[in-house]
Amino acid sequence: MSSEEAFAISWKQLPQRDCWRANDNLAEQDQDTSNVVHRKFNLKQCENPIALQSGGWEYLDHTADVQIHSWGIDMSEAYGAAVVAMSGYMVELGDIPGNLQAEVHIQGHDEQSLLFNLMDECLYVFHTEQFVTKRVIVQSLDTFTWEIKATLQGGSFDSSRHSQGTEVKAITYSNMQIVKKPGSVEAFVIVDI
Protein backbone atom coordinates (compact mmCIF):
# COMPACT_ATOMS: atom_id res chain seq x y z
CA MET A 1 0.00 0.00 0.00
CA SER A 2 1.35 3.42 -0.85
CA SER A 3 1.35 6.20 1.69
CA GLU A 4 -1.35 8.07 -0.27
CA GLU A 5 -3.66 5.09 0.09
CA ALA A 6 -2.82 4.76 3.72
CA PHE A 7 -3.75 8.32 4.41
CA ALA A 8 -6.96 8.02 2.48
CA ILE A 9 -8.20 5.52 5.07
CA SER A 10 -10.27 7.24 7.70
CA TRP A 11 -8.42 6.42 10.89
CA LYS A 12 -10.83 6.21 13.75
CA GLN A 13 -8.60 7.42 16.49
CA LEU A 14 -6.04 9.83 15.23
CA PRO A 15 -5.81 12.93 13.11
CA GLN A 16 -3.61 12.81 10.04
CA ARG A 17 0.02 13.64 10.34
CA ASP A 18 2.69 15.06 8.08
CA CYS A 19 3.76 12.79 5.29
CA TRP A 20 7.02 11.02 5.86
CA ARG A 21 10.06 12.22 4.04
CA ALA A 22 12.44 9.46 3.14
CA ASN A 23 14.96 11.77 1.58
CA ASP A 24 15.65 13.72 4.71
CA ASN A 25 19.19 14.91 4.68
CA LEU A 26 21.22 12.81 7.02
CA ALA A 27 23.52 14.69 9.27
CA GLU A 28 27.03 13.82 8.15
CA GLN A 29 28.09 13.31 11.74
CA ASP A 30 29.33 9.81 11.25
CA GLN A 31 32.57 8.80 12.88
CA ASP A 32 32.77 5.43 11.22
CA THR A 33 34.17 5.90 7.75
CA SER A 34 36.74 3.15 7.99
CA ASN A 35 35.19 0.63 5.62
CA VAL A 36 33.68 2.64 2.84
CA VAL A 37 35.96 5.16 1.33
CA HIS A 38 33.31 6.87 -0.79
CA ARG A 39 30.23 7.84 1.17
CA LYS A 40 28.24 9.22 -1.72
CA PHE A 41 26.52 6.51 -3.67
CA ASN A 42 25.82 7.85 -7.15
CA LEU A 43 23.75 5.71 -9.44
CA LYS A 44 24.32 6.27 -13.14
CA GLN A 45 22.91 4.77 -16.30
CA CYS A 46 24.88 1.76 -17.47
CA GLU A 47 27.14 2.42 -20.41
CA ASN A 48 27.04 -1.08 -21.87
CA PRO A 49 24.44 -3.81 -21.52
CA ILE A 50 25.47 -5.92 -18.58
CA ALA A 51 26.85 -9.40 -18.92
CA LEU A 52 26.42 -12.25 -16.49
CA GLN A 53 28.50 -12.40 -13.35
CA SER A 54 31.58 -14.50 -13.86
CA GLY A 55 32.33 -17.24 -11.36
CA GLY A 56 29.59 -19.29 -9.79
CA TRP A 57 27.70 -19.86 -6.59
CA GLU A 58 25.38 -22.21 -4.75
CA TYR A 59 23.43 -22.17 -1.50
CA LEU A 60 24.53 -24.76 1.06
CA ASP A 61 22.49 -26.20 3.90
CA HIS A 62 22.48 -24.45 7.23
CA THR A 63 19.90 -25.01 9.95
CA ALA A 64 18.71 -21.46 10.42
CA ASP A 65 20.43 -19.35 7.84
CA VAL A 66 21.98 -19.76 4.44
CA GLN A 67 25.56 -20.53 3.57
CA ILE A 68 26.72 -19.02 0.31
CA HIS A 69 29.45 -20.92 -1.50
CA SER A 70 30.94 -18.93 -4.36
CA TRP A 71 33.92 -19.54 -6.59
CA GLY A 72 35.95 -18.01 -9.37
CA ILE A 73 39.37 -18.01 -10.92
CA ASP A 74 40.60 -15.32 -8.56
CA MET A 75 39.49 -13.43 -5.45
CA SER A 76 37.72 -10.75 -7.49
CA GLU A 77 35.47 -13.26 -9.17
CA ALA A 78 34.71 -15.25 -6.04
CA TYR A 79 33.94 -12.10 -4.06
CA GLY A 80 31.74 -10.69 -6.80
CA ALA A 81 29.87 -13.97 -7.13
CA ALA A 82 29.22 -14.02 -3.38
CA VAL A 83 27.58 -10.59 -3.64
CA VAL A 84 25.40 -11.64 -6.56
CA ALA A 85 24.46 -14.83 -4.72
CA MET A 86 23.23 -12.68 -1.83
CA SER A 87 21.14 -10.53 -4.20
CA GLY A 88 19.77 -13.68 -5.77
CA TYR A 89 18.47 -14.88 -2.44
CA MET A 90 16.56 -11.66 -1.83
CA VAL A 91 15.02 -11.10 -5.25
CA GLU A 92 14.50 -12.91 -8.55
CA LEU A 93 17.53 -11.63 -10.46
CA GLY A 94 15.98 -12.24 -13.88
CA ASP A 95 13.21 -9.69 -13.18
CA ILE A 96 15.52 -6.85 -12.31
CA PRO A 97 16.54 -4.50 -15.12
CA GLY A 98 20.28 -4.01 -15.56
CA ASN A 99 20.28 -0.34 -16.40
CA LEU A 100 22.16 1.24 -13.51
CA GLN A 101 25.66 1.20 -12.13
CA ALA A 102 27.65 2.70 -9.29
CA GLU A 103 31.22 2.73 -8.10
CA VAL A 104 32.23 1.52 -4.66
CA HIS A 105 35.55 1.67 -2.87
CA ILE A 106 35.78 -0.63 0.14
CA GLN A 107 38.46 -1.20 2.70
CA GLY A 108 39.14 -4.06 5.08
CA HIS A 109 42.00 -5.28 7.22
CA ASP A 110 42.26 -8.86 6.02
CA GLU A 111 40.73 -11.07 3.32
CA GLN A 112 37.69 -11.96 5.41
CA SER A 113 36.85 -8.43 6.50
CA LEU A 114 37.22 -7.24 2.91
CA LEU A 115 34.58 -9.70 1.74
CA PHE A 116 32.41 -8.91 4.77
CA ASN A 117 32.60 -5.17 4.11
CA LEU A 118 31.92 -5.52 0.39
CA MET A 119 28.84 -7.65 1.02
CA ASP A 120 27.68 -5.39 3.83
CA GLU A 121 27.91 -2.34 1.54
CA CYS A 122 25.87 -4.05 -1.17
CA LEU A 123 23.27 -5.10 1.38
CA TYR A 124 23.15 -1.56 2.67
CA VAL A 125 22.54 -0.06 -0.77
CA PHE A 126 19.83 -2.63 -1.37
CA HIS A 127 18.03 -1.67 1.81
CA THR A 128 18.41 2.08 1.41
CA GLU A 129 18.41 2.63 -2.37
CA GLN A 130 16.58 -0.55 -3.46
CA PHE A 131 19.55 -1.16 -5.76
CA VAL A 132 20.02 -4.83 -6.63
CA THR A 133 23.57 -5.80 -7.55
CA LYS A 134 23.47 -8.15 -10.54
CA ARG A 135 27.12 -7.98 -11.44
CA VAL A 136 30.29 -6.88 -9.70
CA ILE A 137 33.17 -5.79 -11.91
CA VAL A 138 36.25 -5.49 -9.77
CA GLN A 139 38.51 -2.71 -11.04
CA SER A 140 41.29 -3.32 -8.56
CA LEU A 141 41.83 -5.53 -5.55
CA ASP A 142 44.81 -4.72 -3.40
CA THR A 143 45.79 -7.51 -1.02
CA PHE A 144 48.41 -5.33 0.66
CA THR A 145 46.18 -2.47 1.83
CA TRP A 146 43.03 -4.66 1.58
CA GLU A 147 41.15 -2.30 -0.66
CA ILE A 148 38.71 -3.09 -3.41
CA LYS A 149 37.40 -0.79 -6.12
CA ALA A 150 34.47 -2.13 -8.02
CA THR A 151 31.60 -1.22 -10.30
CA LEU A 152 28.23 -2.56 -9.23
CA GLN A 153 25.78 -3.10 -12.05
CA GLY A 154 22.15 -3.85 -11.60
CA GLY A 155 18.80 -2.17 -11.23
CA SER A 156 16.12 -0.92 -8.93
CA PHE A 157 13.85 -3.30 -7.07
CA ASP A 158 10.16 -2.50 -6.94
CA SER A 159 8.21 -4.76 -4.61
CA SER A 160 4.97 -4.13 -6.49
CA ARG A 161 6.40 -5.46 -9.76
CA HIS A 162 9.21 -7.86 -8.94
CA SER A 163 8.88 -11.16 -7.14
CA GLN A 164 10.81 -11.39 -3.92
CA GLY A 165 12.72 -14.02 -2.00
CA THR A 166 13.83 -13.76 1.59
CA GLU A 167 15.33 -10.79 3.31
CA VAL A 168 19.00 -11.08 4.23
CA LYS A 169 19.50 -9.36 7.57
CA ALA A 170 23.26 -9.30 7.78
CA ILE A 171 26.55 -10.93 6.82
CA THR A 172 28.28 -13.04 9.47
CA TYR A 173 31.86 -14.08 10.10
CA SER A 174 30.60 -17.43 11.36
CA ASN A 175 32.79 -20.14 9.81
CA MET A 176 33.72 -17.79 6.98
CA GLN A 177 36.34 -19.42 4.78
CA ILE A 178 38.29 -18.29 1.78
CA VAL A 179 40.02 -21.25 0.21
CA LYS A 180 42.74 -20.34 -2.29
CA LYS A 181 44.12 -22.92 -4.68
CA PRO A 182 46.16 -22.36 -7.81
CA GLY A 183 43.73 -21.07 -10.41
CA SER A 184 40.67 -21.02 -8.18
CA VAL A 185 39.32 -19.26 -5.12
CA GLU A 186 36.32 -20.40 -3.11
CA ALA A 187 34.46 -18.37 -0.50
CA PHE A 188 32.03 -19.63 2.15
CA VAL A 189 29.86 -17.04 3.89
CA ILE A 190 26.89 -17.54 6.18
CA VAL A 191 24.28 -14.80 5.86
CA ASP A 192 21.67 -14.20 8.53
CA ILE A 193 18.09 -14.62 7.39
Binding site: R21, A27, Q164, E167
Partner: peptide, 13 residues
Amino acid sequence: VGVGSKGIIPTTM
Protein backbone atom coordinates in the same frame (compact mmCIF):
# COMPACT_ATOMS: atom_id res chain seq x y z
CA VAL B 1 5.48 -6.93 4.79
CA GLY B 2 8.25 -8.48 2.75
CA VAL B 3 11.61 -7.60 1.25
CA GLY B 4 12.15 -3.88 0.71
CA SER B 5 8.80 -2.91 2.23
CA LYS B 6 8.38 0.64 3.45
CA GLY B 7 6.57 1.83 6.54
CA ILE B 8 3.50 4.02 6.36
CA ILE B 9 4.06 5.59 9.75
CA PRO B 10 5.33 9.10 9.03
CA THR B 11 8.93 9.51 10.22
CA THR B 12 11.54 12.16 9.80
CA MET B 13 15.16 11.87 10.87
